[in-house]
Amino acid sequence: MTEWIVVVLAGFLGGMLNAVAGGGSFITLPALVLVGVPPVAANTTGTAALLPGYIASAWRFRREIEYPKGLGFRSVSVVALLGGSIGAVTLLLTSDQVFSALIPWLILLSTTAFIVGPKLMGFKRPVSGRLAKHRGRSQVQAINIAALMVICIYGGYFNGGMGIILLAAFGLMGQNNLLGMNGLKNIVSALLTVIAVIIYTIGGTVKLEYLLILGVGSVVGGYVGAGLAYRVSQLYLRRLIIVIGCLMAAGFFLNG
């Protein structure tokens, strides 16, 4: 009974964090490992369960969605699906032993993104006047696509902290509307997770006995989190997620 309570709470909290700023995998991955799921399967199952939360959050933010320069729904969709596929296949080729060793480092990477992300979101590339006009669309589009592709590959492999990494990237791409960035973040997350989950399922790593209950929790948490994003201080939320990330990384290092 206790393990199901742990899984339900993990799904709810993971969906809520993902909706607001990312970091849901900081909760779902350790929770599933705690109840005895192998590391790779814990990652794939947790990612699969958080998918409905991404969709619910994207729907909640649908009126605020904005795209970076040179990108639209079609190009973002192609990049997200391709990157998610590459990351998912790479994960399936990784053994539980190797992935266990990588987990604390991946969490630390994600936590670092939470720390530096807000600063990167406020950074603007100095492109001006005639240079922006002649170099603008093609080169900026190529850079944005390449950056998004790398992030989507990472998301298909691990998913942890992907939300804040996406937000930071959108900031570097010139966006400054946090609600619009959150909406786009959830669309990208949903698309790459859809294809990743299909590949995970074909690979037989998704634990169906935990998927449904974790998924229901993530839907509720995702919708609640999207509502909280309009009212709760982003600064305090990020600080909380950073603390959670550090604690989880330390726990995996100590148990490794």
Rank of each mutant, 00 (worst) to 15 (best):
E3R: 09
L9I: 15
G14F: 04
L17I: 03
L17H: 00
G23F: 05
G24D: 08
S25L: 14
V33L: 09
L34Q: 10
L34N: 07
A41D: 12
A42G: 01
T45S: 10
G53T: 11
S57P: 08
S57Q: 04
F61D: 08
K69P: 00
L71I: 01
G72A: 04
F73Y: 08
A80K: 03
L81Q: 00
I86T: 09
A88K: 01
L92C: 07
T94V: 13
Q97T: 14
F99W: 03
P104T: 06
W105C: 06
S110P: 02
A113Y: 10
V116N: 05
K124W: 01
R130G: 10
H134N: 15
R135G: 15
M149D: 00
V150A: 13
C152N: 03
F158D: 00
G160I: 06
I164G: 02
I165D: 03
L167W: 00
L172D: 01
Q175R: 09
L178T: 09
L179A: 11
M181V: 03
I187R: 03
A190F: 10
L191P: 02
L192R: 03
T193N: 15
V194H: 03
G204D: 12
I213S: 11
G217V: 10
S218T: 04
V224Q: 06
V224H: 11
R231N: 15
Y236V: 11
L240F: 15
G245V: 09
F252A: 03
N255V: 08
G256E: 10
